[in-house]
Simulated assay, not measured.
Amino acid sequence: MMKRVKRSKKRDERNVKDPFKKLPNDLNVEILMKMPPRSIARLRFASKHLSSIILDKEFTKLYMTRSSTQPRHLISVHRGGSNMQMQGFHSLSQDHASFSNHDKVSYKLDPNLPYEFTPPVRGLICGRKGTKMIVGNPSTGQFFLTLPRVKTTRRGIISFFGYDPVNDVYKVLCMTILQGRQRRGSKVVSEEHQVYTLGAQRKWRMIESSLISFDLISEEFNAIKLPEDIPCVVNYTGKVAITSWPTRNGEVHLWILEDANKQEWSKVSIVVPSWIDLIDIHHGYRFRGTLSTGELIFSPWTLPINPLYFISYNLKENIAKKVVVEELEEPDASREVYFDHVESPMFCQM
């Protein structure tokens, strides 16, 4: 005779005793809105009632609307070893870039795959090593999702991560080209471009292309002729721009794309005040773009820098300052700073 297994009632009892069920829904939302994403992620598994609120798209939109008014610096810290690779993310206030006001999460990743991350987009971030790619939320502590491998035998791969606001989906674009010895004996260097949509059919789709801009909604490329042969592309007050490297006296030249359809560019030259007093002459610097506040950001090329710092220039007030991130642990670790990071409680789904 088969022995009857007694079903555990722990989960049901936890739901019955859920204190959040007794509170008005508006109050629960207000409580969650005041919490950092990592705490929200924990509550999702502690309360079935709160989980239904957290996973609702309307709550995510409401939370991100508030977060967009309080953008942060996201610092990626990578340390490796013989047995493990740890990717840590620190989220710091842009108003007070110190560890007295930060949140930290860490992820154990494949020790043989040092991922290269793209800038975060609406709370999520994408990393790639070869044909292997991962996507996750650096603020929640949720494990990164591994995407299907990019189907290509080519060694030259460039990846981009973006958000399609019309269809409310995140997309990854991979551009592959023949590289090195693969080009020999071929008169034409062909290119392959593939797109992956999170939460869709869980596969890469081949698309036709020309270059150089890509529309995430229509998934079409549009050719844009550059006014100068400069590879550094930045966001300048909401517009696409290419920029020269800062000179010794802090002079920077920018070519701003005013109209993509008409191929119209304008040129702006900026001299950062007190530049020579703010920088270390032993380092080269790059222009990283503008914050949502309008401030221009410059950071050293050479990493790691200890202490970690960057130069912020307020165009309206014509004031430049050196912003130092204090108390960053593991000074020899590999680090990168991403600006205007918007924290999100969203959970990734392939």
Rank of each mutant, 00 (worst) to 15 (best):
T293K: 12
T118I: 13
I134A: 01
M1F: 06
R335C: 14
P331A: 09
D12K: 04
E258L: 14
C348I: 12
Y107H: 11
E116Q: 06
T243C: 13
H49E: 13
T197L: 14
A41C: 15
Q263P: 06
L62H: 01
V324K: 11
K129R: 08
P246V: 06
G127Q: 01
S93A: 05
R66M: 10
M35N: 08
M346W: 00
D103N: 12
V105K: 06
C126A: 04
S51R: 09
R79E: 07
N101K: 11
G284N: 14
L43D: 09
P114K: 01
L291N: 04
F89A: 03
R72I: 09
L109P: 07
Q85W: 12
K187I: 07
S52T: 10
Q94H: 00
K267E: 15
L173V: 15
K316F: 11
F161L: 12
I31A: 06
R11T: 15
P273M: 15
M175S: 06
F143Y: 07
Y107K: 05
R335F: 13
G238Q: 10
Y313S: 08
A97H: 00
E219Y: 00
D332Y: 12
R128H: 06
L173Y: 04
F160K: 09
S292V: 11
K57V: 09
W301F: 12
V240W: 02
